[in-house]
Design a binder for these strands. Structure first.
Lengths: 345, 345
DNA sequence: CTGAAAGCGCTTACAG
DNA sequence: CTGAAAGCGCTTACAG
């Protein structure tokens, strides 16, 4: 496939036609005007004429080979990047990545070939094509720590989107959940809430742990009460009963999906949000669904995370990353007010 | 920029590590097992081990120069692929493209480089980079016909998503709007509608023309009446007056956005949809917004278009595309019933 | 001011 | 069975 075009124009042919050397053609094309490489105006024009006549364009492969870099940044997503279900998750990140790539003038290589039929995508499986890119941005809620460590060993330039525990040489751009979660707890306490209920996601990832830890420590600092449960099923009624039993006046819910379902369901039971119960979500959906109400929530700067990840990657690749502290970035989250957090009844 | 990775792995280094010649490494990689190029099983394994340890992948530029393909399919979008505004448009297409790429085991190169600050993205400005990919899928509502023709001349393998007029050698995968639009007109006529109003988008593209032409010809065939206007502003009230004046009982609206705004606005005027006026949209939003009502509409098979485009591209690249008819594909649209089309009052 | 030459990393025919 | 060598089309120091 992609057999070379037999009559493809080359600099050599241009040179023949213009009566100069091939190198002179390259020089003209480079647009360089150092004193050391000055071409006569006349020669330059003759070459330019031929180039125009033949509508010649340099072979990118040869250019890249000679230039030693191919201006390709990789993007590896642990799940499909585009499908409907996850698109809300990846879309803003990818938008940021795309914008930064445009800014840097690089192309983006999406590693779609890495998919394995069963199980999650693997970064380093046999025949990994990672090295085709000069460096790579990694996206996904959950990443294989061993793989990341391996990448570090290999000295392959990469940046994870999302904070990563484990090997501390892993560069990342994450969201500062802790500060925002703490703020939300303080806000609730200031509104008179003393009994909290926390519904966590049923999986462990840095991002979920961060929120949970920040919650716990804020609760402790405020000297209030909290119950933490895992939202591993959809039986809102059961939760609601436990919340009533716990006499909680506010519920923090990690997932915005759960938060919406929760609000809708309890309202069907005649419970009013936020009059009877306040709801806060720590989720990161960029595009809040059309819900009857706007749930008070934390908003991760997803687009910026994508942009910053690419910029950091670039700095790492060019050796301008500086100390380790500057290769691990946490971006501030915003808090969307909403109308689901009110005074404790 | 993108200074060369100093320690980029090469076949030469692999060869050193494995104690063989560089050519032997290339041979192992090629997977060739001709009698003329037989390597000892032992050598082969030693090389493979080193390749695995270093997770080496051949430099795509060098491969290309040497005349080989790279398992990279390009994706060129005329607008930003991810940003919020256009993500509804591209998301399903890209999802389809991604799925097909996974199926074929190829990676996807998004041409984000050399974006022009002003004006639309140009294909041929990045023309050189285009060659980095073995072939390319083109996405966008409006494409430059001259550029496409140029690509044909260059014998660069590509497929446009969306029907393309002009040079008939341009391969595409489009949506068969005509049939669906005709069906919708028939359906309306069957419900007793005799006076139609048509609101077209304010730009010319094959996809808008297709729908308009199909509408006109269906109207003619049914021997009913229609007014066609361009929706180049947002003054729904003005349209509504003209619709009333025209005594139309049904409005066909190309853009789903317009259709939603239209429905919402006339209902504020006390006009009931569909009792007083039926509304049909010929738009292609994959993710219908939360509207009070579900507008009867045409649904383009966006995901399938992405998938089919990649498959067709692959066939073209491998020389299995067959005759021209098979390089121009129109996929059937679905009709989503909705509840905005009812009997003429 | 211009041209000959080396080298980028690969593939592949060809000589040992 | 393996290795040395040419060549893909370019860039860029370097020698004239």
């Amino acid at each position: 496939m992609t057999s070379p075009n037999p009559r493809r124009m080359t600099q050599r042919r241009i040179a023949e036609l213009a009566g100069v050397s091939q190198a002179a053609v390259s020089l003209v094309l480079s647009g360089r005007t150092d004193t050391t490489t000055r071409l006569s105006e006349e020669t330059r024009n003759r070459v330019l004429d031929v180039i125009r006549d033949t509508s010649y364009a340099a072979d990118p492969a040869a250019r890249m080979l000679a230039g030693k870099s191919n201006n390709i940044l990789g993007v590896f997503t642990y799940e499909s990047a585009f499908p409907a279900e996850s698109s809300d998750f990846y879309a803003p990140l990818l938008a940021g990545v795309e914008a930064a790539a445009e800014e840097l003038g690089t192309d983006l290589l999406m590693f779609t070939s890495a998919r394995s039929a069963e199980g999650p995508r693997k970064l380093l499986r046999e025949g990994s094509r990672l090295r085709v890119a000069d460096g790579c941005v990694l996206l996904g809620r959950q990443m294989d720590g061993a793989e990341l460590a391996r990448l570090v060993e290999m000295e392959y330039p990469f940046v994870a989107v999302g904070r990563r525990d484990g090997d501390e040489r892993i560069p990342y751009v994450g969201a500062d959940y802790a500060t925002a979660v703490t703020d939300l707890v303080f806000r609730a306490v200031a509104l008179g809430h003393e009994r909290f209920f926390y519904l966590r996601l049923p999986f462990e990832a840095e991002s979920t742990r961060d929120r949970r830890d920040a919650f716990s420590s804020a609760i402790e600092r405020c000297d209030v009460h909290a119950v933490i449960e895992t939202a591993d099923d959809n039986d809102v009624h059961a939760y609601w009963r436990r919340i009533v039993n716990a006499q909680s006046t506010v519920v923090f819910i990690e997932s915005p999906d759960h938060a919406e379902r929760f609000s809708a369901t309890v309202e069907e039971l005649g419970v009013s949000v936020p009059r009877d119960i306040s709801v806060v979500t720590l989720g990161e959906h960029a595009r809040p669904r059309s819900m009857g109400r706007a749930i008070t929530r934390l908003v991760a700067p997803r687009r910026e995370m994508g942009t910053e990840a690419v910029r950091l990657l670039f700095r790492i690749m060019t050796g301008n990353a500086g100390a380790r502290e500057t290769t691990r970035v946490l971006l501030p989250c915003a808090i969307a007010d909403g109308d689901s957090l009110a005074s404790a009844r």
